[in-house]
């Protein structure tokens, strides 16, 4: 569904990654993990066409990204990157997802309003539909952005750290939502820092640090060697009853 062919991206004299090729098949769910500064966000931005690639091409369903229909890719930015004081309500945020669709009038149609309300219901944010964005919690904001990404029926969903800064309950809720969407056929690509709470539960992970270090199921990819190469840190992988835990090899000692 998403294919990068020999892509180089980043700054002109200092590319973040070079000659990268990857494929995310239709209906797949991929989590990209890696340390801060590894280029995960740059990779997402290249997939979304937000940064010019200096070499190679990005294809969506075999079509160059620039020629795809508006709304084919849904995008959820990292929490805290938008202006919380912008004069907008949750419902208006959801309807923004249809801004690329040409309409003669600026207001939303009855059909579009109904769809926004149905998505809000599905994501559990109906009570805040008319609230200002700064009056809702971080988790609710993330769900509003997820609803915005879904309103144009995307075939691909790209999320930048969707579970960052939210509590465990909201993390699980978001992850369940994404899994459900994936079962419905949506291709999902997301970045995450959280190896234990998120990455180990995903069907496919990609260890990324200026390039792909490994990709596959967490049980195959999360090994001491691959994690050391990806994170530049001694990490230990514990496997117990089909569960994986990742922790630092050397315990940290505190005084008190």
């Amino acid at each position: 569904m998403i294919e990068l062919r020999d892509v180089t991206a980043g700054y002109r004299l200092n590319p973040v990654f070079a000659h990268l090729s990857l494929k995310a098949h239709e209906g797949s769910f991929t989590g990209i993990v890696g340390p801060t500064g590894a280029g995960k966000t740059t990779l997402l931005r290249a997939i979304l066409g937000l940064i010019p690639t200096t070499a190679g091409e990005v294809l969506v369903g075999g079509t160059p990204l620039s020629q795809t229909r508006p709304g084919l890719i849904g995008y959820v930015p990292q929490a805290g990157t938008t202006d919380s004081y912008f004069p907008t309500t949750v419902k208006q945020i959801i309807l923004m997802g249809l801004a690329g669709v040409r309409r003669l009038t600026p207001w939303a149609s009855r059909q579009e309003n109904t769809k926004a309300e149905e998505l809000a219901e599905k994501l559990g944010i109906t009570p805040c539909l008319n609230h200002h964005i700064s009056d809702i919690s971080g988790g609710q904001q993330q769900r509003a952005f997820l609803a915005r990404a879904l309103i144009a029926d995307p075939q691909v969903l790209v999320l930048d750290e969707p579970t960052a800064g939210v509590d465990l309950k909201t993390q699980n809720h978001i992850l369940r939502m994404l899994a459900e969407l994936n079962r419905e056929g949506v291709t999902v690509i997301m970045t995450t820092h959280d190896l234990n709470a998120i990455a180990v539960h995903l069907p496919r992970v990609m260890c990324f640090n200026k390039g792909i270090k490994a990709e596959g199921a967490p049980s195959e990819v999360f090994t001491d060697d691959i994690l050391r190469e990806t994170f530049g840190e001694e990490l230990m992988v514990l496997k117990q009853e089909h569960r994986i835990f990742i922790t630092g090899r050397n315990p940290i000692k505190f005084r008190g």
């Binding site: 066409g49 508006p70 995008y75 930015p77 801004a99 669709v101 144009a152 790209v158």
Partner: peptide, 8 residues
């Protein structure tokens, strides 16, 4: 940025 992803 998000607007451009959504076809604006």
């Amino acid at each position: 940025e998000a607007a451009s992803v959504f076809g604006v």
